[in-house]
Structure formats: structure tokens, C-alpha cells
Design a binder for these strands. Structure first.
Lengths: 327, 327
DNA sequence: TTTAATCAGAAAAACGTTTAACTCAGGTTC
DNA sequence: GAACCTGAGTTAAACGTTTTTCTGATTAAA
């Protein structure tokens, strides 16, 4: 691999001049500029990014920490972030915490030691204060509860869940079972809050029994199934797309006519849900905007490190399709 | 951020000694070792990975180039690769080519200039020879046609498609429509070859008309739909999971009883396909093994740069579920 | 003993850039 | 015409490590 020295020698100039031509530092006369560019071309020179990073103290690399790549919600975010970063000249170092807080912690250290310029994190839990000790700009994404010291991007979960629930109510549902994987995360609890607000809006009493955490293990379907049997709801509100999947399985195992006997409203949305018939009615999160905003916020902070932390909440849409019927 | 100099000063030793303690280079006496470790701890020192990379000429970073993160087949591979890399002390720089060859080319240059130690590429086309000019170890994954100069990991597409088709034949199907997005990729053409072999195995004439490339645009459903109307097959063999999705939509639009009137066999498999009822019968690729093998092959080559290129073909399974019935 | 080999540590070079400091014409300003 | 800028280039320092070379002391071999 040729280095900047080889280019300088071939072009008959100093390495500083080569650098100035390529990085657009200072003015270089047309003749020398031409010589440098010619030498670059004929050697096939590509600057060594590691050396650039060491000297200039930035890597133009963002760390992205995701709980699970396989979930279409997260992979949609990854896609949006990767694209947005690329368009602004940044690359993405991807790590998956696999929903494991200890691994998450280790991975942030590892990313920090690789000198990423900043971090976009979807944490596994609501206490990511330790991220502050990294000495790195951090943007929290999606799971943004617990702290206000970081820039954060998420959706208006309360509002979105309220609108979703109101839609179910408008269709005549009165016993709505809210299914979640966990209630440990504040974004999920906000969805519960929205659900509650909608119920109270029509003077229905909020019954905590109708909010069920199914867990993430294989037993989750069973938990959902038993909750359905016990409470006999006319509609299910699945708090995440993974839970939608679960709900569908439970509905099938119970042999309920769908959506005639039981309606289902999802959250998150995902392309491949068109496999489901009836098509899933769902609250849809603006993936592209979430990712682009997170990336944008991070780069803004790189430019202006001292400005106060911002929180951006985006609105969700309701995609009315076929999985909700009148009871 | 403290540097190795700060540690050395606090511990009262030279920076070489600090380096030897931390990187396990040469023997250091217990006393000095203790002093160094103490200083590291009290300063919260973390080595600067960029400086390490510059000097040692390796970044412990792998470039991963994927056509599309959102497709569960690819995201499954990403997951496997990321995990495998992490377990071996490597990180992953992820880029998406969005099925665009020009972007793919640019991204490889960009990854190379970031000095990744090696590249795992799922190319957009069958002529990735240009990757040889990067001067980097490259492993081709999944779409491995066109050249034998690189290490390659994929599945036995011919065998897998043959087994799949044989299963359809064994169920009594005789008019089987093979749907693909494109026939430009050799891994897809190999699947066609397997399909052909299976037909000829039972003395059925191979009819090229029954192999249809639907494209990747929005019009793809229509193409599939018209092919079904025209040829009236009793079974569809979808060559990828994306095409399975398409096939399901076409079947629905045509109002065919599924699987009674028309059977569907998929390729790739994906977790979220359980949304489909009847459950999709499908050829399943060993995602975890594919990813781990690709990563392993790359790291082996880093150790032994001059050994001849290897090709690893893994076998697929057939998951018999519910979407194939007797005609 | 004398000489050579070994050892633990320090000093210094090197990795490939960017950038600050310097040089030396040529042009201004009094 | 002396002092001062300016401008376009060069030289050299710096980024934070790893690794090679060097040093002086201790140990082993002759």
C-alpha cells in the first residue's frame, strides 16, 4: 500500500502539500495540485484512515448498540441509521447486546476504546447512567426512560397507545387485554399509560389485571394464552411487534375466529406482517425518521458539545387494516 | 482521557513496560506489574484502539457488506457474524449496499481505507473480481458465484433445491412454478438447476417457462400473479424468503384456497413466517453456521495469508410444515 | 577469574497522517 | 530603501501506541 510519502516523492512536493490537496486544508497552486492528483491516481493511493483518525482525533465512526438485530423494528432502525450516517460521511460499528446488560456494558467500553466519535444506544434497561462515564456523546434511542442527561429520540408512546386504544374503543371493545414482553422498560410503561388514559377517557375503569407481561422466554405464548382464557377480552393490544407474533400464535392455539371473536392491534409494524391474514392493524413507528433523527442529533452534538441535551419525540401513525373488527 | 504516558508516570515505569503488562508482550516482574495495574485502575485508563491499530497494523475490525439489512435472511447472517466476531475479539463495521453495485464498490473502498483487517461480502452481482484489487482478505458469502479466487461460504443450492422439488413431486405435484426475484445471481440459477434435476429425475420435461423472475420492484406481485394465472401450477417454489412473501400475496389476490388449491414451498426460512397460516414449508439455510463459518474462514486467512482459497458449502434442511398439500 | 549470554527494564524509533511552526520570495507601506 | 506583511511552500512536531534497539546488571560457561 502506498503512503502519503510515496505520493509526495512522486509528485515532487512535501507531504504537507499532499495532505493539503487531499483534505482541502490550505491553498495549493494549480500546478502542484495537478502533480499531486496525478501521483495519487497513478499509485492508486488511498489515505490510511487509522492514521488520519489518530492525528485528527476523530474516526468518523459511530457506535451503534442494539439489543437484537433480527427484530425487524431494530433492523429497520439500523438501516436508517446506517444510511443517514453514510450520507454524512460516517461509518457504523455495530454491536448487539442480545438484551444482556452486562454484555451491553462491555460493548460500550469496547466501542469507546475504538474511539468512535459517538454512540447511539438502544439500551437493555432504564438505567444507562453509566454511559455518561464514557466521555463520549451518546444518543439514546427508543428506550429513552430513566434519565434526561443524554440526547434522546423516541416516539410519543403515551399518545400513540392512547390513539390505538381509542380506536379499539371506537370499534366497541370494552375488555382490552394489553400484552407486553416486560413492564420494566419505561417506553412500554408509557404505552400502558396511554392505554389507561384512553380507558379513562370513556369512563372505563383501568384494571391492572388486563396488563400482562409475558416475558421473553419460550413460555411467553403460554402466559398470553392463559391471560386470554382467564379474562376473555374482545381485543388484544400487543405492545411490540414481537408480542404481535405471540398474540397470533395464542389466538390460533385457542382456535378463536380472528378477527370476529377477537381483535388484535399491534405496535411497531413490520413489512413481513403482510403474511398475516387478516392484515395487522397497527400503530406504526416512523423508523426512517427515528434513525435519521438519532444520527442527526449525534452529529449536531459533535459540532456543539456543550449544548443542553435534547429530547425528540416523534408521533406515530395508526395503520387501520383488517385485524380489528367490532366485537 | 489518560494515555499510556500518564499510566507510566504514575506507576514510575517506562511506557514500554506498561505496554508489556497490558498486551502481555514480555515478562515484567510482579512488583512493576502490580504498580502498572494499580495505576491503570486508579486512572481508569483504556488503551486507544486507533493508536494500537496504527502501530500494530491491525484493527481487529471486520468489514461486513450486506445488500439489505432488513431482510431477515441477511439480518440473521449479520447476527451470527457479529457474535462470532465478538467472541474472537473482533468488531464489525457494517455497510449496506442496498443492492446497488456502484454503492457496493464505493463502500468497499471506504472500508479498506478504514483499514479493516478483512471483508465479508454478500455481493450484489456475480462479478466481484474488483475485490481482489483491495489488497484485503475477502470472504464471499451466500452469493458466491463467478469466481474462485476468494474464500467462499454458501449452501449447496443445487442439492437443496433438488430436495425441495423432490418433496413437491413426492406429494404429487407435476406443474411446479419456480418464482425468483432475479436469475442474474448464480446462487439462484443453482436453485433452478436443482429444480431441473429433480424434474428430470422423474422423467418430467423441464419447461423454462415455469421459471419466472419477478424482479424487485413493486410490480413483482403482478408478474407472479400473471404467471400463476397463465400456467396454473399446483405448487409454487419460492426461491427466496422475499419471494415467499410475494407468492402469498399473489395467492391471496387470486383467491386460491391455500394449500388445497395451490401449495407453496419457501427457501431461506425466517422466524416471523409463523404469522402465515398454514405454516410455511421451506428449505432452511443454516444461518448461524453460515455466519460463523464465514467469520472463521476470514480469521484463518488472516493467520495464514498464502493458503489457497477455500469454498465451504453447507447443507440445507427441509422443514415440512403445512403449506404443501397434495394437489 | 574472564568472557559471554541472559535478563528486565528503559530509550527511541516507527506506524501514516494533520497541523503548527518556520522559511523565503515578492509586494506594501512609510 | 528599510521594515513589514503576505503567500505558498517546506520542515518538523504531534497523535498514542507497539516494537526494536540499547543498557547495565546478573548469571552461566569456559
Amino acid at each position: 500500500m502506498p503512503t502519503i510519502k510515496d505520493v509526495a516523492k512522486l509528485a515532487g512536493v512535501s507531504i504537507a502539500t499532499v495532505s493539503n490537496v487531499l483534505s482541502g486544508g490550505r491553498y495549493v497552486s494549480p500546478e502542484l495540485r495537478g502533480a499531486v492528483l496525478g501521483a495519487v491516481r497513478s499509485l492508486g493511493y488511498v489515505p490510511n484512515g487509522v492514521a488520519q483518525s489518530l492525528r485528527s482525533r476523530r474516526t468518523r465512526t459511530l457506535g451503534l448498540l442494539i439489543p437484537e438485530i433480527t427484530n425487524p423494528f431494530f433492523s429497520g432502525l439500523v438501516k436508517a441509521i446506517e444510511r443517514s450516517a453514510r450520507e454524512r460521511g460516517y461509518q457504523v460499528l455495530l454491536s448487539s447486546s442480545e438484551e444482556n446488560p452486562d454484555l451491553e456494558f462491555d460493548l460500550t467500553l469496547s466501542l469507546a476504546s475504538r474511539q468512535v466519535d459517538g454512540l447511539i444506544v438502544i439500551p437493555t434497561h432504564d438505567s444507562p447512567e453509566y454511559l455518561g462515564r464514557l466521555g463520549l456523546p451518546v444518543v439514546l434511542l427508543d428506550r429513552i426512560g430513566g434519565t434526561e442527561r443524554f440526547d434522546r429520540v423516541g416516539v410519543d408512546n403515551v399518545g400513540a397507545a392512547r390513539i390505538g386504544t381509542e380506536f379499539l374503543l371506537s370499534q366497541g371493545h370494552r375488555r382490552i387485554l394489553l400484552l407486553a414482553s416486560t413492564l420494566e422498560l419505561s417506553n412500554i410503561r408509557e404505552r400502558v399509560e396511554g392505554y389507561k388514559q384512553a380507558l379513562e377517557g370513556v369512563n372505563l375503569k383501568y384494571d391492572p389485571e388486563l396488563v400482562v407481561a409475558c416475558g421473553r422466554e419460550a413460555s411467553a405464548v403460554r402466559v398470553a394464552l392463559e391471560a386470554i382464557q382467564k379474562h376473555r377480552p374482545t381485543a388484544l393490544f400487543a405492545a411490540t411487534n414481537r408480542i404481535s407474533l405471540l398474540a397470533v400464535q395464542a389466538i390460533r392455539e385457542l382456535g378463536l375466529a380472528f378477527p370476529q371473536q377477537i381483535s388484535l392491534l399491534g405496535f411497531d409494524d413490520f413489512e413481513w406482517s403482510t403474511l398475516l391474514e387478516p392484515y395487522l392493524t397497527t400503530v406504526v413507528q416512523p423508523l426512517e425518521a427515528l434513525g435519521a433523527t438519532a444520527c442527526g442529533l449525534l452529529l449536531e452534538r459533535l459540532r456543539e458539545p456543550s449544548r443542553p441535551p435534547q429530547t425528540v419525540l416523534l408521533p406515530c401513525d395508526l395503520a387501520v387494516r383488517q385485524s380489528v373488527a367490532r366485537p
